[in-house]
């Protein structure tokens, strides 16, 4: 056993929460590399990170499980293999039950679950349950150099970070409340509307002053 492991405490000790601010991501993949060091799925990285469109921008899209209050993945699972624990963590598919149908992979509005062909199973981010259940921060948020992935209390967030926490996303008619928060400038504008994403403005609309945008 790990001699330095603290004693078991309540999950997500001290009401620490996970916040993802994609706009800050620098695409370094420290999270991807650290994810596969997580004890519950060693060697398999479950976080997602890819360029949005490298030809146009260095913007990258990191994605952890948002831990929906009412998880679509669990509702569409024919095998009843995806469970939420007392702390609201949506866990990876129960290995004995998962029948590898990929319904969750295709239905998750955030595109989170991964299907692994060789074990014929789905696996997904469980917010580093081996760490959070003993009071440690998840691997990805621990290492993230830009702190696009952040783990702390709401008070700490308000003291140290700009922006406001947002726990709701809209996908067409569907509003999805999540345990993991993202960051918006103004919460009163309502849930993050994902289907209008392609209208997002460019931060540097003409970086080299070429005059053609």
């Amino acid at each position: 056993m790990n001699p330095a492991a603290p004693t078991i405490v309540d999950p997500l000790v001290g009401a620490r929460m996970f916040v993802i601010d994609q706009s800050r991501c620098i695409g370094c993949e420290a999270c991807v590399q650290a994810c596969e060091e997580c004890g519950t799925h060693r060697g398999q990285s479950l976080i997602h990170l890819e360029f949005v469109e490298r030809g146009a921008t260095t913007q990258t899209a990191p994605m952890v499980c948002m831990h929906c209050d009412d998880p679509t993945c669990a509702e569409v699972c024919p095998a009843d293999a995806i469970k939420q624990n007392e702390a609201g963590i949506v866990q990876s598919a129960l290995k004995p039950r998962c029948i590898g149908c990929s319904n969750c992979v295709l239905a998750c509005p955030f595109g989170v679950p991964k299907y692994f062909a060789l074990p014929d199973q789905m696996m997904k981010c469980d917010m580093c349950y081996d760490r959070t259940s003993v009071g440690l921060a998840p691997m990805c948020a621990s290492v993230c150099p830009s702190q696009a992935l952040w783990f702390g209390t709401e008070d700490e967030f308000e003291e140290t970070r700009s922006g406001q926490l947002m726990h709701e996303f809209r996908f067409g008619n569907q509003v999805v409340p999540t345990k993991v928060a993202t960051v918006v400038a103004d919460r009163t504008a309502g849930p993050v509307d994902v289907m209008t994403a392609d209208d997002a403005p460019r931060w540097q609309d003409d970086p080299f002053g070429l005059g053609d945008g």
Binding site: D21, Q22, S23, C25, H48, E50, V52, E53, A56, T57, T58, Q59, T60, A61, P62, M63, V105, L106, C108, P109, F110, G111, G163, M166, F169, T182, V183, V184, A185, D186, A189, V192, D193, V194, M195, T196, A197, D198, D199, A200, P201, R202, W203, Q204
Partner: peptide, 22 residues
């Protein structure tokens, strides 16, 4: 929407709410 575009869209939508993306 394919899962990859879902992730990209979530990122772009979030970026739009904090000022923009790259």
């Amino acid at each position: 929407t394919c899962p990859r575009c879902r992730r990209a869209s979530v990122t772009l939508a979030q970026c739009a709410r904090v000022g923009g993306f790259g």
